[in-house]
Simulated assay, not measured.
Amino acid sequence: MALLADLGYEGVGLTLDHMHLDPLAPDLTTRTRRLAHRLDALGLDVTVETGARYVLDPRRKHGPSLLDPDPDDRARRVDLLIRAVRVAADLGAHAVHCFSGITPPGTNPETAWHRLADTLAPVLDAAATAGTPLAIEPEPGHLLATLADFHRLRRVLGDPEHLGLTLDIGHCQCLEPLSPADCVRAAAPWLRHVQIEDMRRDIHEHLPFGDGEIDFSPVLAALAATGYQGLTVVELPRHSHAGPHFAELSLPFLRRAEATATRSPALVPPHGDPSATPEGSTS
Rank of each mutant, 00 (worst) to 15 (best):
G101K: 00
L4A: 12
T111K: 12
A121G: 08
S240L: 04
P189R: 08
R83Y: 10
I136Y: 13
H18W: 10
D40I: 00
L56M: 13
D68K: 03
V184H: 00
N108D: 15
H114Q: 13
H142R: 07
V96T: 11
A221C: 12
R33P: 05
S264V: 01
D182G: 04
G170M: 02
V55L: 14
D149Q: 04
V233Y: 01
D198M: 05
L67W: 07
E49T: 07
V87T: 13
D159S: 09
V48M: 08
S217R: 15
A5F: 05
L7G: 02
A41K: 10
R53S: 11
H97Y: 07
R31S: 06
I196A: 04
E161R: 11
P104M: 03
H239K: 03
V78H: 15
K61F: 01
V78W: 14
P109A: 09
T226V: 15
I102Q: 05
A25F: 09
Q229K: 04
R256S: 06
A93R: 08
I82F: 10
R185E: 10
A225F: 01
V219Q: 00
H97R: 08
L134E: 11
V268P: 04
H241Y: 02
R77I: 03
D90N: 13
R31I: 02
L191V: 09
P105M: 06
A242M: 01
R34N: 10
S275W: 07
D182R: 05
S100N: 05
Q173D: 03
G170L: 04
R38A: 08
D45L: 03
L67F: 06
L254R: 08
P278S: 06
V219D: 00
V233P: 01
S100P: 12
L66N: 08
G11H: 05
D211F: 12
D72K: 04
L21F: 10
P26N: 09
F150V: 07
L236Y: 06
H245L: 01
T132R: 15
L178Y: 10
Y54M: 08
